[in-house]
Amino acid sequence: MAKKEQPRANLLQGTLDMLVLRTLLYGPAHGHEIGKHIQRTTNDFLQMQHGSLYPALHRLEERGWVTAKWEKGPNQNREFKYYRLTEKGRKQLLVEESQWKQMAEAVARVMWPAAEES
C-alpha cells in the first residue's frame, strides 16, 4: 500500500485538546465531524489520528469541558454522539489559546531573531 507523500505533522502534546475545543466553538459536532473539520481546515496537513481523537474527546468530557449526548443528525434518521462546549470548556479554551500564543511567540523569538529586530 503506497504511503501518502503529503507532509504531515504530529500534534504537539495537548494541542489536540485545544483544536477540538476551538472546533466546538462553532456549535455541537460529533467525533467524525470534528476530525474531518480539523483535517479540512489544515488542508490535510493535520491528519486526524482516530486513536488520539477519541481518547481526547473522552478526556475532555471527563474533565467537564464538553458534554456529550446522543442526538438525531440534521438530515438523517440516525443518532450521533454530539459533543458540546461547556462554560468551563470555553474558559479552558481561552487559557490554552493564550498559552499557545506565548509558546509560539517564544519559539518564534528563538528561531527568527532578525525578524524580531526589524
Binding site: 477519541y54 473522552h58 440516525r78 454522539k81
Partner: peptide, 12 residues
C-alpha cells in the same frame, strides 16, 4: 457507548 460511537462514525 464508545462502541456505538465508533460504529456510527465508521459508517459515516
Amino acid at each position: 457507548d464508545l462502541q456505538r460511537e465508533l460504529q456510527s462514525d465508521l459508517e459515516l
